Simulated assay, not measured.
Amino acid sequence: MRVDPANGRPAVTAQGYGVSLAGIAPLSTGKGDDIRFMMTGGRGLGRYVGANVAADAIYDTANDRLVPVPLLAGFAGVRHFWIGTLRSTWMGSFQRIWNPATASPLSTRQVWDTAVNLFVSPLPRLDLGVELRVSHRELVNGASGMLERLHFTVKQGF
């Protein structure tokens, strides 16, 4: 990462890194049910995780340095086939960000999200679905909020 300070000083750089582990584990139901999961952690990878709620780095003007922001994020989902072409998925995710002291009080500290859906495929390559999603976000200053959404989906594959 690199920043060119407006004060005429030379560019400031910092290294970031990330590690991720993901997988799918079939369940022994005989229907194709499975668990899907992923964990990601590191410094300086905010733009690559979730909905880009974390900064990659914060410029510390007092010390003229770029501070990579550490984070940990993950999700898990369980997919279940009810009967025929009717299926559901329950999923949950989180992201925790450890912002440096110089970060804005409006920076995100943590988010979590959960959703449940129901899909049916009445024809090959046609999916109809409905999903309820609840999300929560907390800022460094302690302010927080929730968002509830109901989605309807039609997907035609080619």
Score class of each variant (00 low, 15 high):
residue 146 M to E: 10
residue 118 L to N: 04
residue 144 S to I: 11
residue 152 F to I: 14
residue 134 V to P: 00
residue 132 L to M: 06
residue 115 A to G: 12
residue 144 S to T: 10
residue 141 N to W: 14
residue 135 S to L: 01
residue 121 S to E: 07
residue 146 M to K: 15
residue 125 R to N: 10
residue 146 M to C: 09
residue 145 G to L: 02
residue 111 V to S: 06
residue 125 R to H: 09
residue 142 G to D: 10
residue 148 E to V: 08
residue 113 D to G: 10
residue 130 V to G: 09
residue 124 P to M: 08
residue 154 V to E: 06
residue 141 N to F: 13
residue 114 T to S: 05
residue 108 T to C: 09
residue 110 Q to T: 04
residue 143 A to F: 13
residue 137 R to T: 12
residue 124 P to C: 07
residue 115 A to M: 12
residue 127 D to K: 09
residue 116 V to S: 00
residue 110 Q to F: 03
residue 117 N to H: 11
residue 118 L to T: 02
residue 129 G to W: 06
residue 112 W to R: 04
residue 132 L to N: 06
residue 114 T to M: 07
residue 128 L to P: 01
residue 120 V to L: 07
residue 142 G to W: 15
residue 124 P to H: 07
residue 152 F to C: 14
residue 108 T to K: 01
residue 115 A to V: 08
residue 148 E to P: 03
residue 132 L to F: 07
residue 138 E to W: 02
residue 146 M to W: 07
residue 140 V to W: 05
residue 123 L to M: 10
residue 133 R to Y: 02
residue 110 Q to Y: 04
residue 118 L to C: 01
residue 127 D to N: 10
residue 134 V to F: 02
residue 132 L to C: 02
residue 127 D to M: 08
residue 127 D to R: 08
residue 152 F to R: 13
residue 108 T to Y: 04
residue 151 H to R: 14
residue 138 E to Q: 13
residue 128 L to V: 11
residue 138 E to C: 02
residue 122 P to Q: 04
residue 130 V to T: 14
residue 126 L to A: 06
residue 128 L to G: 02
residue 112 W to K: 02
residue 140 V to Y: 03
residue 154 V to F: 06
residue 113 D to W: 12
residue 131 E to K: 10
residue 147 L to Y: 12
residue 121 S to A: 11
residue 135 S to C: 00
residue 132 L to E: 06
residue 138 E to K: 08
residue 112 W to T: 03
residue 135 S to R: 06
residue 117 N to E: 09
residue 136 H to K: 02
residue 114 T to H: 04
residue 129 G to T: 04
residue 116 V to H: 00
residue 113 D to H: 09
residue 146 M to A: 14
residue 116 V to F: 05
residue 126 L to V: 10
residue 139 L to A: 09
residue 154 V to G: 11
residue 127 D to P: 03
residue 126 L to E: 03
